[in-house]
Design a binder for these strands. Structure first.
Lengths: 229, 229
DNA sequence: TTCTTGTCACCTAGGTGTTAATAT
DNA sequence: ATATTAACACCTAGGTGACAAGAA
């Protein structure tokens, strides 16, 4: 079984409608997709990988009221048409793959090397996504079958885990200002854009002060949702 | 077979008497121990690791003429007594171990995560060395034998490679100022201590201008010495 | 108008030798 | 005296969103 790390933070983003930046050079995800894994055979080899599937075949367009684009309380995602042609369905292998079950289970597995790009011609092995489309990250565990005819058992040698709270819209620039603010508040690399006392958060945060704070404070002892397998 | 990378730079340091800093927290080596590997079975698994053996049982002390310690042309290493009691003989596994031969051979293998410490109680897995002692780095390739009784063949399942030009003295502070200068000149992280035009070297270096420069310029197309196996 | 691109200041994270203080 | 330690300024390397300019 698999437990999503930082579930509370994912939930907070998901509630607002998570957005992930895609760039030509490749951009990391934030939050980073991280999991705790249980129940592997400690001595067996496993490959861990991720891919991204479109949530629907729609293309999104922002703004019910274009003239009020700073009225973020009224912002929403509108369907703008059918999806663009499917992108190359790339896969990201965790760089430690393959490794023994014991190795994977003894610490949090972090996909922080995974990068998202909108460059269809990318040759850095990044995940290629269409901007303004919604995606569902998927996590796959593949058992490396030592048997000679292992291809025969391919179907039973992997498991897929889906956490719906990690869904997001790929964008080239943030559309929802509240997403921007939550990213700035929670991503250490965006600390330069914070205006509050940097020492005050999240370490010395008073619980319940602001909605987005309290959930993140809880996330320091994450209780993850079961994966929708 | 194994080829030492940056051999010309190693030679330059070795000629002056290479020194490596050891600290409580752990310090990387510079130059970094890097090799190109040939002749592995591409499909077989291998572990790559390093250890460090004392070159002799002597303890060193610097300075023939203590009153002239700035006269570096006369500096030399003197024997100061018997070696201190042996340190825990730790080993550093390359973090990508185990991996297939094809993986190891397709690019330079770099031991840049390896750190040296003088802390006998170190619990970070760093290599523990005695300051003011000389060491010979060794590189080991271990074939992961798939046979059930693989222990029987342990003796024939590994090869050790020794490059004498990588010998060094462990120190807590540099003793030979020419070593300091060569480190500053060649280690990118020490660029802040350079006084010459940073753009001029090593990129646009005129060959033969200074001894220490020419060797490094050659090192860009390294011709490595055969390992003393 | 909407979306994308490239550059930038400002961060995190961590590798350098220097230096002054301390230990042996 | 000599050896070690810890704090420091100055780097490399690279992850942020802001912003202005460009593209569709």
């Amino acid at each position: 079984s698999v437990q999503l790390e930082m579930k509370a933070l994912w939930d907070e983003f998901n509630q607002l409608g998570t957005e992930m930046i895609v760039t030509k050079a490749g951009r990391r995800m934030f939050p980073t997709f991280q999991v705790k894994i249980f129940g592997m055979d400690p001595m067996a080899d496993y490959m861990l990988l991720m891919d991204f599937v479109p949530v629907d075949d729609k293309r999104y367009r922002q703004g019910a009221f274009p003239s009020c684009r700073y009225a973020f309380h009224s912002s929403s995602w509108l369907v703008a048409g059918k999806a663009d042609p499917a992108t190359p369905g790339r896969v990201h292998y965790h760089p430690d793959s393959p490794a023994k079950g014991a190795q994977w289970m003894k610490q949090i597995v972090s996909f922080d090397k995974l990068k998202l790009t909108n460059n269809l011609l990318d040759d850095n092995g990044h995940i290629i996504l269409n901007s303004m489309h919604r995606y569902q990250p998927r996590f796959h565990v593949v058992y490396v079958d030592p048997r000679k005819d292992s291809e025969k058992y391919a179907e039973e040698n992997f498991k897929t885990f889906v956490f719906e709270e990690t869904r997001f819209t790929a964008v080239t620039a943030y559309q929802n200002h509240r997403i921007t603010q939550l990213k700035i508040a929670s991503n250490p690399f965006a600390k330069g854009f914070r205006d509050c006392d940097p020492e005050d958060w999240p370490r010395n945060h008073r619980p319940g002060a602001l909605p987005l704070m309290s959930a993140f404070a809880r996330s320091r002892n994450p209780v993850s949702s079961p994966a929708h397998q």
